[in-house]
Amino acid sequence: MRKVLLTLIAAAGAVSFAGTADAKWYKKEVDERGAKCYLVEYVPSTYKYNTRGKLVQHESTSWEGDIVDGNHIYHRRNPAVYVTTKKLVEQDHYTLVPC
């Protein structure tokens, strides 16, 4: 099946190249002053966020519960606490994209 398909594609390509070449005329508007067309595009600021920016509290462990017969006592891990910081990577600006 694949060979038949490839043969048909090759035959269609050969027929399309076998035609006579016709010159085509067209009209194009040219600006003699050399003006160029641009689209204006706004690019917003880009920031890099650091979730471990400023340390507020170190990591610690704690014991919770009452030391009495039959009660439960829990040993817990308290993760560190940070304040997220952001750093400007690229300032917002406009850019011109050719048409």
Score class of each variant (00 low, 15 high):
4 V>H: 11
77 R>A: 12
46 T>L: 13
4 V>P: 03
80 A>D: 08
35 A>W: 03
37 C>I: 07
19 G>P: 03
89 V>P: 01
74 Y>H: 09
21 A>K: 05
30 V>R: 01
9 I>G: 04
41 E>W: 06
44 P>N: 06
17 F>N: 07
39 L>F: 05
70 G>F: 02
3 K>L: 11
71 N>D: 10
87 K>R: 11
83 V>E: 02
95 T>E: 09
73 I>D: 04
95 T>V: 15
46 T>M: 15
64 E>N: 10
63 W>E: 05
64 E>F: 12
14 A>W: 05
47 Y>W: 14
16 S>R: 02
62 S>Y: 07
37 C>P: 00
35 A>V: 01
67 I>Q: 10
8 L>Q: 11
24 K>C: 13
84 T>E: 13
83 V>H: 00
57 Q>R: 07
28 K>S: 13
93 H>V: 01
20 T>L: 05
16 S>M: 04
7 T>D: 11
97 V>W: 04
8 L>E: 10
79 P>L: 12
36 K>Y: 04
82 Y>S: 01
17 F>W: 09
51 T>R: 15
61 T>F: 13
20 T>P: 05
41 E>A: 08
49 Y>H: 14
55 L>I: 02
35 A>Y: 03
94 Y>T: 02
82 Y>K: 00
76 R>Q: 12
56 V>K: 12
60 S>P: 01
28 K>D: 10
85 T>Y: 07
88 L>W: 02
5 L>K: 00
50 N>D: 15
7 T>Y: 09
12 A>C: 15
74 Y>C: 14
29 E>T: 06
65 G>P: 00
28 K>E: 13
85 T>N: 04
33 R>K: 09
24 K>L: 15
56 V>W: 04
91 Q>N: 15
81 V>T: 02
68 V>K: 05
74 Y>S: 14
55 L>K: 10
68 V>R: 08
79 P>Q: 08
19 G>M: 11
69 D>L: 07
82 Y>P: 00
57 Q>C: 11
9 I>C: 05
7 T>F: 03
80 A>S: 14
46 T>R: 07
27 K>D: 05
4 V>S: 09
42 Y>G: 03
51 T>W: 09
12 A>M: 08
59 E>M: 14
23 A>S: 11
60 S>A: 15
80 A>L: 04
29 E>F: 01
59 E>A: 15
64 E>C: 10
29 E>N: 02
85 T>A: 06
44 P>S: 08
95 T>G: 11
60 S>C: 04
17 F>G: 13
88 L>V: 03
23 A>L: 06
47 Y>I: 04
88 L>M: 13
5 L>N: 00
47 Y>Q: 06
6 L>M: 14
6 L>D: 09
30 V>G: 01
6 L>K: 08
78 N>Q: 05
13 G>N: 10
55 L>W: 05
77 R>L: 04
47 Y>H: 11
90 E>P: 00
83 V>P: 00
97 V>P: 06
80 A>N: 03
15 V>S: 06
95 T>L: 15
12 A>K: 03
71 N>C: 09
66 D>N: 10
56 V>G: 11
17 F>I: 09
75 H>Y: 06
10 A>W: 07
21 A>L: 14
27 K>T: 07
98 P>V: 02
14 A>F: 13
10 A>I: 02
66 D>P: 00
69 D>M: 12
39 L>Q: 03
99 C>V: 05
58 H>M: 11
13 G>P: 02
6 L>C: 14
27 K>G: 11
49 Y>T: 15
43 V>D: 05
72 H>N: 15
65 G>A: 05
79 P>G: 09
28 K>T: 12
